[in-house]
Design a protein around this nucleic acid. Structure first.
Lengths: 363, 363
DNA sequence: TTGTAGGCGTTATCAT
DNA sequence: ATGATAACGCCTACAA
């Protein structure tokens, strides 16, 4: 009360508190971290002094001394501005953050810094990392692993010693394709996703490759041996879906059904179809993947393969924290269920379909 | 090459490199941070040794000694799992992260930790904070400010010395209400948002209060003096919008138009209306706010007040970094434009409307 | 061009 | 119940 309040030129440190309270730094530290090891009135007095000069423990110094950060990182192979274009990513982030919060961990977003993921990882002050869609074939993957930070990968194919969280990719897409074929569709367009860095030839086990296998198998299950036409989108966004459908149309494809590897792509494809004066589902059926929140509110409500997006994020964090705490589960691979949700974007093909055999531009 | 590779029990430090390279720690530091201050071959040799033993500068130690973290925090008053339910937040985060990446900053998400925002801020290792929707009346606001971290607030009313980023709230909502009134609507339901902590009585300048004023003024502009009915949702989610419309209906309200303070609420309200066998827009017109990506793809495409969501996030980061770097602009308040986007969810009211005067349950 | 020494702010160890 | 002192790992005047 009687001491003059001076604008502090620098942040008060634990030493300042110790001095003014007439105790050692150790005691001040105890007052904050293990109050029970101090006489009640001493602790109280120290806290009072600390509050009076506005002392607050410096988080970075704490980290250095404790050798833990209390934070986990979420690694994304692409810029966050791109990732967030797909609502899937918002939902996944929600799951990750919810589980992190529940365990008292902060969340840091780790995306390529000046084009380098490894550099971003090097700067990240985290105890562990959840990597979403990081291909094992990523050019910087060696450097990233060398950082030695515990990691769990989601939606990516890695050697068996890497903890992973995945969903039943083949099962979902297989069910979707089988359903479409059973409706009578034969001219089918698959809109897949393939990051340039994860070229399927080099990475035969990416989730996209698995989904594609599921689609093919589903068609076979229904007795359709004709393989679907495939067009590749490089980002899972509405805009990409629109462009993909337009391109396919321009190239002479006349599908009666579209199997899109994400709802965002499916929504874009629906819009493109409408632009071409096609009715959904009367002229073209469309199936998505993910079942994002808005899938049921678009026009028409989207038939899609549901995966538990939030749960996937939570599961990844739970697995990661187990590893970080040195208690890895016996099975470090989590697989979550998928299932087909039939709504209104799918129907039997129109009678007048199949005037053109899809694919080659043979006259 | 000839040295045996031993599994390192501990992370190699700068001292290890110095020793093996036969130089001082200073030189090692230089080799990484100011290579030009070293003889080219010395630097090269040091880097080689460092790489060979897997040395990488410890980010926390770096932060401590440089007294900067190279990261910014995004502060959210609610749990991230709740925030991400509104697609608006994903878009805003995309803007924030894009601008942060562009300046070489990492992004940390700062949400209440064990119920306390101040605690989360205390743990956050960031150079500055972008706070989204943090009411000045938040119970922990004093404690948060005391942390002394540079901050920019978005979508919240603060004293003039706080740097802020906002949009023309009144203008957008005014235009929306005026448009609705001009279509002939008189029985209007406003679905507003009001976090419990930001009660409007205590916070007359929240963006929600400003939007409400805009709605009222817009009606007056069109010669409608009858004030709209208001129902409050506590989270801006589809589910809340659905519940809000249902509640209003159950309480006897029979609006011919709904002004929702977010697209998520509007989408929910649309769905609720349909559940009640109302057609949109034939029986009920619905207007949203935000213009999130999917607004144009829902059924029917949503008439809404557009605000530049991503740009808002970018602007906040740009302003924040200017402050952090000690170069605050002359005007620390940024205001971005809003404008009404008319789509298909609005139309004149049905002829048979107004059988019941909205509001009281007078028989 | 390179080295010495001290500081960044905290926690942990070992005394007393 | 408290204190002295040494890590934690790096950066950076200041020297040489």
């Amino acid at each position: 009360m009687e001491e003059r309040v001076v604008e502090h030129p620098r942040r008060p440190t634990i030493a300042d508190v110790a001095e003014r309270a007439g105790v050692s730094k150790t005691s001040v530290s105890f007052a904050f971290n293990s109050p029970n090891r101090l006489a009640p009135d001493t602790a109280e007095r120290i806290r009072h002094v600390a509050a009076s000069i506005g002392y607050r423990p410096h988080p970075v110094a704490r980290m250095l001394s404790q050798r833990r950060t209390g934070a986990i990182g979420m690694l994304t192979p692409q810029a966050l501005g791109v990732m967030f274009e797909n609502p899937f990513f918002g939902a996944f982030t929600a799951g990750v953050s919810t589980a992190a919060e529940a365990s008292g961990y902060a969340l840091q977003l780790v995306s390529p810094l000046a084009g380098s993921l490894a550099r971003a990882v090097g700067r990240a002050t985290v105890d562990g990392i959840v990597a979403i869609g990081l291909p094992y074939q990523h050019p910087e993957v060696e450097e990233i692993r060398r950082a030695g930070i515990p990691m769990v990968t989601v939606d990516a194919a890695w050697p068996a010693d890497m903890p992973t969280v995945d969903v039943e990719e083949e099962r979902g897409s297989r069910e979707a394709a089988s359903y479409i074929a059973s409706l009578g569709h034969r001219d089918i367009l698959v809109i897949s996703i393939d990051a340039p860095a994860a070229n399927r030839d080099q990475a035969p086990e990416t989730i996209m490759a698995r989904r594609l296998r599921g689609y093919r198998q589903g068609l076979l299950d229904a007795g359709v041996s004709e393989p679907p036409t495939e067009v590749i989108a490089y980002t899972a966004t509405i805009e990409s879906g629109r462009a993909a459908f337009h391109d396919a149309w321009s190239n002479g494809h006349r599908p009666t059904a579209v199997l899109a590897m994400s709802d965002a792509l499916a929504i874009g494809a629906m819009h493109a179809a409408r632009t071409l004066d096609l009715r959904v589902p009367a002229d073209v059926s469309i199936v998505g993947y993910d079942d994002i929140d808005v899938a049921q509110y678009v026009d028409p409500p989207l038939t899609t393969v549901r995966q538990p997006i939030r749960r996937k994020g939570e599961a990844a964090v739970e697995l990661l924290l187990a590893v970080v705490h040195g208690e890895p589960p016996s099975d470090i691979h989590t697989t979550l269920a998928t299932n087909l949700i039939v709504r209104a974007s799918t129907a039997p093909p129109p009678q007048w379909a199949r005037p053109v055999k899809g694919g080659e531009a043979e006259p």
